[in-house]
Every structure is written in structure tokens, then in C-alpha cells.
């Protein structure tokens, strides 16, 4: 299987004036292949989210590098990383994080449009994904009218609509009950794998480990021994 995403000894330290430097991620290496699911677990403050932000090109590592399909992502300037995020990386955040003034369908179609799809194609792709995720009947609803589970499924559709190479999910079950959380993550994994993407899920929900092809445990910013 081809390697989609790779982090080589990435490090990140938070510094703020007047405070001591706080190392968040220390020398973490991770590789995820196409159709593979990696789950990163660890307690709060262990550096999971910081690692995910570096994997997605939202943060630049202080040391080490992140490669997407073999090309370095972390060294690119923000506009170039932004273009890659739009077309090659899908994100699922905690609580879904949808644009409030757009309907569920518009939230999904917006990303496809921005990634270059024609209006009709973007709409069709959004509709198809919402159907596969079982929320097509809520397509016209604004985010405020969606349940947390529905909002998260819409967020999954948004993450997948541009057919990304990598999907990164940050605590996707954090605000869902056990059943909803399991359904959302299973749907996310199935759709991501079907589309040939690599999936990285950051969570402290140990039940998600069962879905993983590989598991990375973080403690104090370092990979903990298995």
C-alpha cells in the first residue's frame, strides 16, 4: 500500500512571553498508508491535537517534517498548505463545527465548490454523501437545528466531499453518546477507506482502537511504548 501521510520526528513547543516553554510534541514519527486507519490515543494534554494540526498543515513543526504523498507539506508557505488542505486533506473537528448561516447541504457543497467543482457537481456530491451518511433528509436544515450526531455526520460529509488523500479527525466522538459516536466513526472509516484515503483519528475514547489498523499512544508529547 502506498504511504499517504508521514510525520518524521516532528516536534512542537509552545512559547509565550513571560512563561516557560511547554513542549507539546517531541520527536513523533508516524506513517499511514492509503485505506489505513491510525488512531492516536492519549490523555488530555498529551499532544494529540497538536500532532494532528501538524499532520494537517495547520501548524508548522519546530523540527522534523510532514510528508503528504511523498511531498513535504510542513515546509510550504501557508497559502500552499491551504490549497493542499482544501483538495487533499479532509478535517473532522469536535462538535462538527459547521458554518452557522449555511444549511447542512450548503456546508458540504461549499468545500467542493471551493475545491474547483462545478456548482451542479458539488451539489450532487454533497447530496450523495449526505445520503450515504443517513442525513439527506436534514440537508436543508441549518446547523443549529441538527442533533450533535447529525452535525458530526454532516462534518464527515464535508471532510470527504473533495475526495481527499488524508482525513484527519479530532475527537470526533467527544460530544456524542456511545452509539452515535460509534456510528459516526464507522461511517467515517468506511467512506474514507472506500475513497482510498488514509484516516487518522485523534481520541481519548479507547473504544475506537478497535477500528484501527495501527495505534499510536502519546504521553507528554512522546510516543509511549505499546
Amino acid at each position: 500500500m502506498s504511504e499517504r501521510l508521514r510525520a518524521d520526528a516532528v516536534e512542537k513547543t509552545w512559547r509565550s512571553p513571560g512563561s516557560a516553554a511547554v513542549p507539546a510534541v517531541r520527536g513523533v514519527t508516524l506513517a499511514v498508508a492509503a485505506r489505513e486507519t491510525a488512531v492516536v490515543v492519549g490523555p488530555s494534554g498529551s499532544g494529540k491535537t497538536t500532532l494532528l494540526a501538524m499532520l494537517g498543515g495547520l501548524l508548522r513543526p519546530d523540527a522534523g517534517r510532514v510528508l503528504l504523498d511523498g511531498a513535504e507539506l510542513s515546509g510550504l508557505p501557508e497559502p500552499a498548505r491551504r490549497r493542499l488542505r482544501l483538495r487533499r486533506i479532509g478535517f473532522v473537528f469536535q462538535r462538527g463545527l459547521l458554518v452557522e448561516h449555511l444549511s447542512a447541504h450548503e456546508n458540504v457543497a461549499l468545500v467542493a465548490r471551493a475545491a474547483g467543482a462545478a456548482r451542479a457537481d458539488a451539489a450532487a456530491r454533497a447530496t450523495s454523501l449526505l445520503e450515504r451518511l443517513g442525513v439527506a433528509q436534514r440537508a436543508a436544515a441549518p446547523p443549529a437545528a441538527l442533533s450533535p450526531g447529525e452535525a458530526q455526520r454532516v462534518a464527515v460529509a464535508r471532510a470527504l466531499v473533495a475526495s481527499p488523500a488524508v482525513v484527519l479527525a479530532d475527537e470526533p466522538t467527544a460530544h456524542l453518546d456511545a452509539d452515535s459516536g460509534a456510528r459516526v466513526v464507522r461511517a467515517l472509516r468506511d467512506l474514507a477507506v472506500d475513497g482510498g484515503a488514509a484516516l487518522v483519528v485523534v481520541t481519548h475514547d479507547v473504544r475506537l482502537v478497535a477500528l484501527a489498523d495501527r495505534v499510536l499512544r502519546l504521553e507528554d508529547g512522546r510516543v509511549a511504548p505499546a
Binding site: P79, R82, R85, L86, A114
Partner: peptide, 15 residues
């Protein structure tokens, strides 16, 4: 937060 979300998803500054 919403604009931050759109920037994170990858919408360019121009958009």
C-alpha cells in the same frame, strides 16, 4: 471562529 474554520478547511484568503 467561522472564518478560522474555513481557513483551516483550506479556503484561501481571497475567498
Amino acid at each position: 471562529a467561522e472564518y478560522g474554520l474555513l481557513a483551516a478547511i483550506g479556503l484561501p484568503d481571497g475567498a
